[in-house]
Design a protein around this nucleic acid. Structure first.
Length: 872
RNA sequence: GGGAGCUUAGCUCAGUUGGGAGAGCAACUGCCCUACAAGCAGUGGGUCACAGGUUCGAGCCCUGUAGCUCCCACCA
């Protein structure tokens, strides 16, 4: 016996455990099956899953369950990411609260702490994924710092190094003074900030003249090694080759002519600080300028800043400006809005700084990765995201992969203390291969997190070993992720797959939007508007949450989370629950015949036909990753067709005395419910499986059943369509009663003029029950129904309902006139179309025929209404 | 500076080969009818941002305009 109310808590955990124990999620190579591979984007171990994850995981789970039911060998490989910088920031915060620091702990002890952190959050994330119902293969759970991932990272690093695609060099990088590490370009977020333009005098050496330089960062002045003017700039041309004196330091620096100086912008004179600005760095290279770094790693000024040494960059700025003012070198200060880069993890203002770092040379890697998308070896869904990808890939600069952090994959490079040789090796070297020296020290830095993420599609399957899994499951089929990490991750997986596996890592990239809060804001910690998926599951159940994240969402679009939406979905779950309870209570303990062995009524055929449409539409939608459409289709089928119509239609049959008809109804109810549950299962796995087990004749879980297939033999086109006429009659009677304020409980008599007597007779009971009527009389003309009647014209004929005193003939006349007007408008519309030469000659024949049929129908209806009006 | 998305019912949003505008929530009316009041039946509500164009036909395709959001690049 099913419980009376839908209570997900009673079965969600139980079912998950069972699935897991029975090995339902396990993907083992099976050469009789076609593999279908989805690699879970490994969530960061920085915290717990948020709504965005919940959506991401749900989408993947739907796809995987769908494919698994379709008979694929479906692998959904789960994992978590060590998230180098993000996690390190978190753990540093944590130990700071204990009065400790990274440095005081030392590398080893610190890493010990991070591993503890990892264990805690990894477990939490796994638990959350399970709560959501994720059907991933837990036996393959991978952490990006697992042995196998480390091996893959080593392999790839060394290979790229040997191919000279990884190099070490001094370049301008983004430096986070707070995390004290280099960042890649992708890890910097720019935002507009109000700042100032300081106009500073640089006196010309040996002349009573000066160049006015405008800068937004005066404190970098100490690192100036030139002033640039445009060679075509008449104002300053003559100074090129001369020196100016750097204020405060009174150090002579040359004036150079360079296109970089924009004559229209600022004063036309640019201070050149190669060590602290990417453009200036380039200018410096062109003019062979020295690179003078004036800042320390923590954002304070170094000894080259003279008296400002040790000061924070902003304090230095303030004092320096003050000094310039005193020395009369400050011309003016103008407010200026400019874009400032921030660290994507801690938010601190990043400082472009010259630094010796490791880089991946992108040029050769990018081209094939671009071509792979052009050649459709990888397809972005929706397509528009390919553009974003191209744009980034085509302009990509070399990738800075070294991080001055402790948590992460250590760079596999050693330096010989004796001969200075740099050794890059897959296995830790003991002696220097050149001089045999034994004092080797490993590079202190770790790799960018995304370096290991980029290998995820194959490192998880055993690369660099030639494993059977790799052969079978690689490349993956679909990668599901948000548009925010196309650059970080998707792009890098594509070029890595091509470079190291010679094959793209996946066929489709399904990009989804962000989950926002009720007001459309991004969910974030600082706003405190995040909603914890676990809390929602606790309150409404995982199925409701899942459905709410899928429903009404267009591919790639952002969506809003709201409790109201989840509540509406919970109502749907409740609806499914109760409808199922109804069906099961009627068939429990019985042997139900297959529908092929019973005589089907019009209503039976109609609902089976509707089911076929639903199966077809859901399958089509899922194949195109249109989850919103799939949900809507199922919702309508389940709620409107099955519950509101079919179950109501079947009640008189079940409660009537005809055993044969009853048996047929039971067959159909069972058949439809069973199929509907299968159809719904990928979306709402828990409730469907819980119910499925109560259906007589089922054995075990629904998740291993075959996904329903559209069967054209079960569409019963003619009968199903004919049944539409019956529902029309029922609706007409209901509407008439409401219009007349007739209580639903009051049964009316129906008089019908029709040419479809047989059809209506066959469905008489349904009409009586659902319309709230007591009898149906077939008549040949209106008069037979009496005087005080309400008239409804429907496709199958004209309905008359004598309603006694409830009928106000005047009102009835007005109402009919209104209907006449509507029908006339329809006739005008159809007529206009059919009289349009263009339409008739160019529109598809099917459409024209349909339009003709409509016109005929409306003309007939108009005639009936006119006749009726005459009698009033 | 370049690019993308959005603008449809009071609210949140669907609407994918161009062929009579939809859902949920809210509102209104009436109903506890043995699956479900977390429900049932019925009703109202939209020049589909604006202006042009293509087409027999445009919410959908093209051009432009406005507002909002986002991404990339960047001005020292």
């Amino acid at each position: 016996m099913m419980e009376k109310t839908y209570n997900p808590k009673q079965f969600e955990d139980k079912l998950y455990k069972e699935w897991e124990e029975q090995g339902c999620f396990k993907a083992v190579r099976d050469d009789k099956k076609v593999p279908f591979t989805v690699m879970m984007p490994p969530p960061n171990i920085t915290g717990q899953l948020h709504m965005g994850h919940a959506m991401d995981e749900t989408l993947q789970d739907v796809i995987v369950r769908f494919k698994r039911m379709q008979g694929y060998c479906a692998l959904w490989l789960p994992g978590t990411d060590h998230a180098s910088i993000a996690t390190e920031v978190k753990v540093v915060e944590q130990i700071k609260a204990e009065g400790l620091s990274k440095e005081s702990l030392g590398r080893e002890a610190f890493l010990e702490r991070v591993w503890q952190w990892k264990d805690k959050y990894n477990a939490r994330i796994v638990n959350q994924l399970k709560k959501l119902g994720s059907s991933c293969d837990w036996s393959r759970l991978t952490f990006t710092m697992d042995e196998k991932c480390s091996k893959a990272v080593r392999e790839v690093f060394v290979n790229l190094y040997n191919k000279k695609l990884i190099y070490r060099g001094s370049r301008i990088i983004n430096w986070c003074p707070c995390c004290k590490t280099a960042l890649s370009d992708a890890e910097v977020n720019y935002s507009e900030e109000d700042g100032f333009f300081w106009h500073i005098k640089y006196p010309v050496e040996g002349e009573d003249a000066f160049l006015e330089v405008a800068t937004t960062r005066p404190e970098t002045m100490f690192g100036d090694t030139a002033v640039a003017v445009n060679p075509a700039d008449g104002r300053y041309k003559r100074f090129i080759g001369k020196n100016v004196l750097l204020p405060v330091l009174n150090k002579p620096i040359p004036v150079v002519g360079d296109e970089h100086a924009d004559m229209q912008f600022g004063t036309g004179c640019v201070k050149i600080t190669p060590a602290h600005d990417p453009n200036d760095f380039e200018v410096g290279l062109r003019h062979n300028l020295p690179v003078v770094r004036v800042m320390n790693d923590d954002g304070t000024m170094n000894e080259l800043a003279g008296e400002y040494c040790g000061l924070d960059r902003y304090d230095c700025r303030e004092r320096l400006v003050e000094k310039l003012k005193q020395e009369n070198l400050l011309v003016k200060v103008r407010p200026h809005v400019h874009n400032v880069g921030h660290c994507y993890r801690c938010g601190a203002t990043v400082e472009p700084i010259v630094s010796k770092q490791w880089f991946v040379k992108m040029e050769k890697l990018a081209r094939p990765a671009i071509d792979a998308v052009i050649d459709k070896k990888v397809t972005f869904v929706p397509e528009r995201f390919a553009k974003i990808y191209y744009n980034w890939m085509e302009n990509v600069k070399d990738w800075c992969i070294s991080r001055q952090l402790w948590w992460g994959h250590r760079i596999p490079v050693w330096y010989c203390q004796d001969c200075g040789k740099e050794i890059c090796a897959k296995v830790d070297p003991n002696i220097c291969p050149v001089c045999g020296g034994k004092s080797l020290s490993q590079d202190e830095d770790v790799l960018d997190t995304w370096f290991s993420s980029a290998l995820w599609p194959f490192s998880t399957l055993g690369f660099p070993e030639d494993t059977s899994d790799l052969e079978y499951f690689y490349p993956g089929d679909v990668l599901v992720t948000g548009y925010d990490i196309i650059f970080f991750w998707v792009a890098r997986m594509i070029f890595s797959g091509l470079e190291h596996m010679r094959k793209v890592p996946f066929r489709d990239v399904l990009i989804h939007g962000l989950v926002r809060d009720e007001k459309g804001r991004k969910m974030s910690k600082s706003l405190g508007n995040g909603v914890d998926p676990l809390e929602v599951i606790e309150k409404y159940g995982a199925d409701s949450l899942r459905f709410s994240l899928l429903q009404g969402v267009a591919p790639g679009n952002d969506t809003r989370y709201s409790d109201a939406k989840v509540e509406a979905c919970a109502n749907f779950m409740n609806k499914i629950w109760n409808a199922s309870r109804f069906v099961i209570s009627n068939v429990e303990g019985k042997t139900v015949k297959p529908i092929s062995e019973v005589k089907l009524s019009h209503a039976d055929k109609w609902i089976i036909s509707r089911l076929q449409s639903a199966i077809r539409d859901v399958t089509l939608a899922l194949n195109k990753f249109e989850f919103g459409i799939a949900c809507q289709t199922m919702y309508d089928f389940m709620w409107s067709d099955f519950c509101d119509w079919y179950i109501e239609l079947v009640k008189p049959v079940l409660y009537g005395g005809d055993e044969v008809k009853r048996a047929a109804a039971e067959s159909v109810l069972t058949f439809v419910l069973q199929n509907a549950l299968k159809l719904l299962h990928p979306f709402i796995p828990f409730v469907t499986d819980e119910i499925y087990r109560y259906i007589p004749g089922t054995n075990g879980t629904v998740m291993t059943q075959e996904f329903p297939r559209y069967n054209s033999k079960l569409t019963y086109k003619k009968d199903a369509q004919a049944f539409g006429g019956i529902t029309e009659i029922i609706k007409a009677v209901r509407a008439a009663k409401t219009e007349l304020d007739c209580p639903p409980s009051r049964k009316v008599s129906l008089y019908i003029v029709t040419e479809s007597k047989r059809l209506i007779s066959a469905n008489q009971e349904s009409i009586l029950k659902l319309a709230g009527a007591k009898e149906i009389n077939f008549i040949t003309e209106a008069g037979e129904a009496g005087e005080k009647v309400v008239t409804k014209v429907v496709s199958l004929g004209t309905l008359y309902m004598p309603m006694g005193d409830l009928v106000d003939l005047e009102k009835e006349k007005i109402r009919l006139e209104g209907e006449l007007e509507k029908v006339t408008a329809e006739i005008r519309r159809a007529d206009g179309k059919l009289n349009n030469q263009g339409f008739v000659s160019k529109a598809p024949k099917k459409l024209i025929d349909e339009e003709r049929a409509k016109l005929d129908k409306y003309i007939e209806m108009r005639q009936k209404i006119v006749n009726q009006l005459k009698t009033l």
